[in-house]
Amino acid sequence: MSVALLGAVGGLTAVGLYLMTGRPLSRIVLGYALLGHAAVVALLIAGGRAGRPPIAGRAVPEAMANPLPQAIALTAIVISFGLTLFLLSLARRQQALSGDDLVEDDLEDRRIAARQGEPDEPPGPSAP
């Protein structure tokens, strides 16, 4: 297992998560892409040590890299590619509707924010 690859997974995850906590959707897209890369590299590490390309006839099986995690990683790459495009189109739609691509507060947050500054209890009609 290579320490450099492990470091790469850690770094990609850290940067990806940091970007994903931001509000602009364009940053979130980048963060998601980096996180996806982290997962793919983690899958490669899980496959064990590197070896010859796993193609029949090109190398003896003992010298080949483990093809199963590679197959899994390939599927994951395709899925995350499609989802990145969907996120981008969502950002475009949001921009067309509201003029920016910021992820807004949810309804509950807004209700709580709206209550700040109000008195805790509405003044009753017949306070003693």
Partner: peptide, 27 residues
């Protein structure tokens, strides 16, 4: 679109965590 974003981003994050979990299990 507003609430869909929260839903999409949250689930995408969970999916990536799932994938990393698969890597752990395989390793």
């Amino acid at each position: 679109v507003r609430s869909g974003m929260t839903y999409v981003v949250m689930n995408l994050l969970a999916s990536v965590l799932f994938l990393i979990g698969v890597a752990y299990v395989y390793a």
